[in-house]
Design a protein around this nucleic acid. Structure first.
Lengths: 139, 139
DNA sequence: AAACATTTTGCAACAAAGTTGCATTATTTC
DNA sequence: GAAATAATGCAACTTTGTTGCAAAATGTTT
């Protein structure tokens, strides 16, 4: 059973405002990760650019969304799973996939990141894995 | 035996100019990956900002440098190894490490990316793995 | 439900990052 | 060394992201 935007906001101890509900709904109804630009184009007529920046920032801090690194200077955001806060600490362990054909970025929730053996003296804290190629709808 | 900047430019069929030599030397003498900003601050008095943008773009296209994805909207650039062009195709297969303490990003050339099994229908083309944590000099 | 305190929002102004066209200068080719 | 080609610097511009502050909305109290 999927939570509604208001429920998510409430459980994160955030005030329920039109802007937040709206932006969160955009995430809930999208299968892909989105760049700030994508979100802005979907609601710039309803909310100010600044509000979107601040809302994304707030969602990040509360662990509602997470960022996905990219090579092209455009961070993408995607909803977090319920289980990605482990002992007060944010922890996404899934692989991200970017399709070279359709340009979409998605979370492969079922595909966990394999462990890697680092050189002596390095201590890993967080691991990101981004695979690019062709997705199953474009193949 | 390390190649000089002029030699690298020559073997990439690029004209040898002061700007390109200079920027390439910055890469050759740096152990870390660098953001545009880092490069700019090292030579903005010698070259125009636009020249740096265009030079980095050219180096990317020729496979002299590669980008390293990051979560903070600042792409970093690092020198490619000689063997990263395989059959006319760019292919970096090493893990990247970002230190949370000193902020530096380095290529772990000896650490190759483990293989990952993608869901049915997905075809991988390139894989990026970025590990953050504490590096061996900050530990 | 009205009054209060607290947050959030929109606006304006700004700062930083990246792009484009074009004339000038440097590099390569012959 | 002259002609052809390519790279650079400059100016102007677009896009992206940030900050302060007054107005508006939300939450809280009684």
């Amino acid at each position: 059973m999927k939570k509604t935007s208001s429920e998510i906001l409430k459980s994160s101890a955030l005030s329920i405002t039109e802007g937040r509900k709206n932006i969160l709904d955009i995430f809930l109804s999208s299968a892909n990760a989105m760049a700030h630009q994508d979100i802005e184009s979907k609601c710039k007529d309803k909310f100010d650019r600044v509000t979107i920046y601040r809302t994304l920032q707030t969602f990040l801090e509360k662990g509602i969304i997470h960022t996905i690194p990219s090579s092209d200077n455009t961070t993408r955001y995607a909803l977090c799973n319920d289980d990605c806060i482990v002992s007060g600490h944010h922890h996404d362990n899934h692989v991200h996939f970017t399709c070279d054909a359709c340009g979409k970025t998605i979370c492969l929730d079922e595909t966990s990141i394999p462990s890697v053996h680092l050189p002596k003296g390095f201590r890993a804290h967080q691991i990101n894995m981004i695979v690019s190629g062709v997705c199953k709808t474009c193949i």
